[in-house]
Amino acid sequence: MCWAKELGHTKILLLGANGRTGRGILNLALEAGDDVTAVVRSKDKLADIDHPNLNVLAGDVCEPEALQQILPGHDVVISTLGPRSPTKAACRIYSDSAVAVVDSMQKCGISRLLVVSTALLFLSSKLLDRVLRFIARNNAHNASLMENTILASKLEWTIARVGFLNEKKSEEYRLAEGALPEGSNSIPRAALAHFLITEAKQSNHPCNIVGVSE
């Protein structure tokens, strides 16, 4: 079942907080006065951030038992997890984390999930898109497995598919449900972070796959 709701003060469980997009989300959430629990491999990853609304926990995002200890009390889970390299092993972070997160959320009764995926999964007959999908086939394959796990769940999910991420300071973005907006296949990390925080609070696209670009 999917529904739309708007949250004020939000308790966010953030996965991938030490990445560049994750840090953008973290900063926006803390500026808004939200509570954030960041799950990282090592607390040292966020040692440079000290804030009373931030709780940094070391844990394995692919271990359901660990997540089930952390999840209760949160309003939303935001995942920006992704591979640091295009190898088969690295790309499994998509699929392995999705299984653990979905299972844990359903057992804990937490429903709202936002994840970042790849625009490579949008159907396209363009030669460049087909070449890119072949080059990044491990990424696309495991992202597809991740999405299938989420779609089969009973959660209130939103999947944000994005193309190339850049470091522009702009927070402006365009959206399309079921496609990448025409005219650009890239997005500033700051804009993606802004979209995810907005979606976490307003739930404008429950149970939808949206393309996000600049």
Results as ranks from 00 to 15, higher is better:
L26W: 10
Y94F: 09
L13K: 13
H141W: 11
S153P: 00
D48T: 15
N166C: 14
E6R: 14
L30A: 11
T10F: 06
N138A: 09
T158D: 00
R20S: 14
D96M: 01
D35L: 08
A152S: 11
H141D: 09
C108L: 10
I70Y: 06
T198Q: 13
A29Y: 07
H205F: 02
K45P: 14
G163F: 02
L15P: 07
T10E: 02
L165Y: 03
L15W: 04
G109Q: 02
T37Y: 12
W157Q: 00
A191M: 07
A58F: 10
V210R: 00
H51T: 15
N142M: 10
K107D: 07
S144G: 15
L54K: 11
L14P: 06
E156S: 10
A90G: 07
D60N: 13
A32H: 11
S42M: 14
S42W: 15
S124D: 05
S85N: 14
D48Y: 15
K5Q: 12
A190T: 11
Q106R: 01
E171P: 10
G33N: 04
A143H: 09
A193V: 02
A66V: 13
L180P: 00
H9W: 08
V76S: 13
N55F: 14
H9E: 15
E199S: 01
S85H: 03
R84W: 11
G16A: 02
I135P: 00
H205P: 00
R137K: 10
K45M: 13
A100H: 02
S124H: 04
K154M: 05
Q202H: 04
S144F: 07
V101L: 05
H205K: 00
K11C: 06
P72H: 09
K201P: 06
L155D: 00
N148Q: 14
F134A: 07
P64K: 01
K43P: 12
D44H: 15
A90K: 03
N27E: 15
T198P: 11
E172S: 14
L196P: 03
S117Q: 08
L128Y: 02
V61N: 04
D44L: 15
S117W: 08
P206W: 02
T10H: 03
E199C: 08
Q68H: 12
A152I: 02
N142R: 01
A176Y: 03
R23M: 10
K5P: 06
H205Q: 04
V101M: 04
I78T: 15
D48E: 15
A136H: 10
S111Q: 13
V210K: 01
H51W: 11
C108E: 09
A4G: 15
M105N: 03
L14R: 03
V115N: 00
T198C: 10
D96I: 08
G19Y: 08
L127K: 08
G211H: 08
G82I: 13
V162L: 04
K43C: 13
